[in-house]
């Protein structure tokens, strides 16, 4: 069971103040805590668990700048066997399509049964890369997996996976999919392990393979902002619209007011 898991380093803005740079092309990043995309962390755990059950090799792959190597090292410490870093200044400004094209180029020629991605990313959040990969590599896709089991399968020579995934109205479906396949992983599919000190120790000397655009056989026009199909015009803070009537005062006053409102407008 060889698995490639595609991951991304993203900013966690949950505790940060959002300040848009002048010109609206980027955010002030000083306050950001960076780390692996939450969905991708579940994908790495899913890959490592499958390897622990069935053997094989798990390769973690990311596209990004030098700092982004940290998520690969993290994936190795969690139990991935190999890491591939698609790193080239020309990748800057890539959209989901560009990321998927570069990943697809790196994946082609490797032997794998499963290609795992996080279902969406915490930053752009379009949920496209997995589906693009399936399209580019002509593989079947299962999006939003909440349970993943595999039968046989050894390096792209067949086998099937049973995947439970989310559809509409709170329903889930169980499908059987031929391998190799692309599966995008939803949060909650497992309980991702911590990166342990022993894990870090084990991979202290591990090599991360670095591939640039030329190594992937991609032309300059296909890379980064040059190859982006979706371009950013402007970032802005969401209009507050009508928004909530925000209650002010001491806790005591606020709660008193709230009880009144629940009574009058909520019909309590």
């Amino acid at each position: 069971m060889n698995i490639i898991v595609c991951i991304k380093r993203v900013a966690d803005t949950s505790e940060a103040e959002i300040v848009i740079q002048r010109g609206g092309q980027g955010l002030e990043e000083e306050d950001f805590a960076w780390g692996i995309n939450e969905w991708d962390n579940f994908a790495v755990e899913a890959a490592v668990q499958l390897k622990e059950q069935h053997g094989g090799v798990v390769t973690a792959m990311t596209l990004g700048g030098e700092d982004d190597e940290e998520v690969l090292r993290r994936a190795l410490a969690m139990g991935c066997d190999e890491a591939v870093h698609l790193c080239d200044e020309a990748f800057a400004g890539a959209d989901a399509w560009g990321i998927a094209k570069a990943l697809a180029a790196a994946v082609r020629g490797r032997s794998y049964d499963l290609l795992l991605c996080g279902a969406v990313s915490g930053d752009a959040g379009g949920g496209q890369v997995g589906g693009f990969l399936a399209g580019l590599l002509d593989l079947p896709l299962v999006a939003l997996a909440t349970c993943l089991e595999v039968g046989s399968g050894n390096g792209g020579t067949g086998g099937v996976a049973r995947v439970r995934h989310e559809v509409e109205s709170g329903l889930e479906r169980v499908v059987e999919v031929d391998l190799p396949a692309v599966v995008t992983v939803q949060t909650g599919i497992n309980e991702p392990r911590y990166v342990s000190i022993r894990g870090i120790r084990k991979v202290a000397g591990a090599e991360v393979q670095v591939l640039d655009g030329a190594a992937l056989g991609l032309q300059a026009a296909e890379l980064g902002s040059a190859g982006a199909r979706v371009r950013l015009e402007e970032l802005f803070l969401p209009p507050r619209g009508e928004g909530a009537e925000v209650l002010e005062g001491s806790d005591e006053e606020i709660v008193q007011r709230l009880v009144e409102m629940l009574h009058q407008r909520g019909g309590l």
Partner: peptide
Amino acid sequence: HTNNGLDLAPLLAARLDLPMLAD
């Protein structure tokens, strides 16, 4: 942009080689 949409749209965009604006 529903769960089924996430399952279908990017796949379709890639197969048809079209730019995609998500969500």
